[in-house]
């Protein structure tokens, strides 16, 4: 069964499955130990390299297990981890498992433009107002009408010495928003890149000392970015294209990495995101097989009661009109052929002398005849008339 079409072949909303979008992706860390090598970390030795890629490798397959930053001894203690997801995803959660005592201040950011600009998704701090100038997150989520980056408690140290940073997109979103019908929520969950900014080592607690007394490094594993490849309800899976780029396998007459536009010939109505109630498939223009291109006209769309706004371009086979549904001047419909036939329009072939013009009736093919002339193409004298020598009045009354 095709998730994007029902049993009757009608389009329906379809979405890719939930995946860890960070799995196998390269992670850029602003600081990684082992260069120069020390007793426990050597970037040139695979057995002792604590590289950032360990954050997104398949769990349990790598050794060592954890990425480690360089030793931090004095401020600033900022270290960033950045992962590009390759295309837009709709986030569900982000999590990061710390291998040592978790930092007491973390900022979680996202980009929607492949790293050109960044906006916060949330903050995690033992002192929200001092670190980020924000109050602690209210228990019921944001008070405003839309999602916002809130400040949550810092990850707690676990008995094993580590800790877990966990963020759900719902944490920053007011209750009651529905992804299908809320553009602000759609915007909130959309990300092409994730950045985690670690800003205060656990060893400092809540203090802002510029120097740590004991050498410290951040250490973490299992960076998970739970989300769905963003296809706007028009694809059930994402694939790698011939250039190795992740793209949606677009259906419903859509195209683009995120199925966010209609295919060139599918512009009979505006592009829309699919919802659970309506697939909003892009519709092919109705050109009766006589055109390969069309354009969308909003005015015609409104006038049609929001049903059809496509205008066929470059009608071929001597057809004309918005849907290539009638014959162009100088041609008429052959009643023996269907409208989609390449030869549905026949040349008028009006007689150069007997006809008063070159344009025939587009339905009947009747040319306009001069006085006393008859026939579909005006090529004979009518009964009671005979041919004259004058091309201006080719038929005159029989004496």
């Amino acid at each position: 069964a095709d998730p994007c079409y029902d049993e009757a072949g009608e389009p329906r909303c379809c979405i890719p499955g939930l995946v860890n979008a960070a799995l196998g992706r390269e992670v850029l860390a602003s600081s990684t130990c082992g260069r120069p090598a020390n007793r426990i970390c050597d970037s040139s030795d695979p057995q002792r390299a604590h590289s950032a890629d360990l954050l997104t490798s398949v769990p349990g397959t790598a050794s060592p297990l954890c990425w480690r930053s360089d030793l931090l001894q004095r401020a600033p203690f900022n270290v960033t981890l950045t992962v590009a997801l390759g295309k837009a995803f709709e986030l569900v959660f982000v999590s990061l498992r710390f291998c040592s005592a978790p930092p007491t201040s973390v900022a979680l950011l996202k980009s929607q433009d492949h790293g050109r600009s960044w906006v916060p998704l949330g903050f995690f701090s033992s002192s929200c107002s001092l670190d980020y100038g924000r109050p602690p997150a209210p228990a019921g989520g944001p008070a405003g009408p839309g999602p916002e980056a809130l400040c949550f408690p810092a990850p707690q140290a676990q008995p094993d010495g580590g800790g877990l940073l966990a963020f759900s997109v719902q944490d920053g979103s007011p209750q009651g928003l529905d992804l299908d019908n809320s553009p602000v929520l759609q915007d909130w969950v959309t990300a092409t890149d994730i950045r985690i900014l670690l800003t205060r080592p656990a060893i400092l607690g809540d203090t802002r000392d510029p120097v740590v007394t004991v050498p410290y490094s951040y250490s973490a594993t299992e960076l998970q970015v739970g989300g769905r490849c963003k296809c706007n309800g028009h694809a059930s899976r994402c694939l790698l294209d011939s250039h190795g780029h992740l793209i949606c396998d677009c259906q419903h007459g859509t195209e683009g990495p995120d199925c966010s536009r209609c295919k060139p010939f599918f512009c009979d109505r505006p592009w829309q995101r699919a919802t659970g109630q309506e697939a909003h498939a892009c519709l092919a223009c109705s050109c009766n097989g006589h055109a390969r291109r069309c354009r969308f006209n909003m005015e015609l769309y409104r006038l049609s009661g929001r049903r059809s706004g496509g205008v066929c371009l470059n009608c071929r086979h001597n057809t004309a009109g918005r849907h290539c549904h009638y014959c162009r001047e100088g041609f008429y419909r052959d009643p023996g052929r269907v409208l989609s036939d390449r030869r549905a329009c026949r040349a008028c072939d009006c007689h150069p002398v007997g006809a008063a013009g070159k344009t025939c009736n587009q339905t009947t093919g009747q040319c306009p005849c001069k006085d006393g002339v008859t026939g579909l193409t005006c090529n004979r004298c009518a009964p009671g008339f005979q041919q004259s020598r004058s091309p201006v009045a080719p038929c005159v009354k029989t004496p």
Binding site: H351, G375, R380, C381, F385, Q387, R389, P391
Partner: peptide, 23 residues
């Protein structure tokens, strides 16, 4: 009765050279 088709050869184009169709 079906009338014969117009015979182009019978037309005198002397005064209507500018109207004469290209053959």
């Amino acid at each position: 009765d079906v009338m014969p088709t117009l015979d182009m050869a019978l037309f005198d184009w002397t005064d209507y050279e500018d109207l004469k169709p290209e053959v």
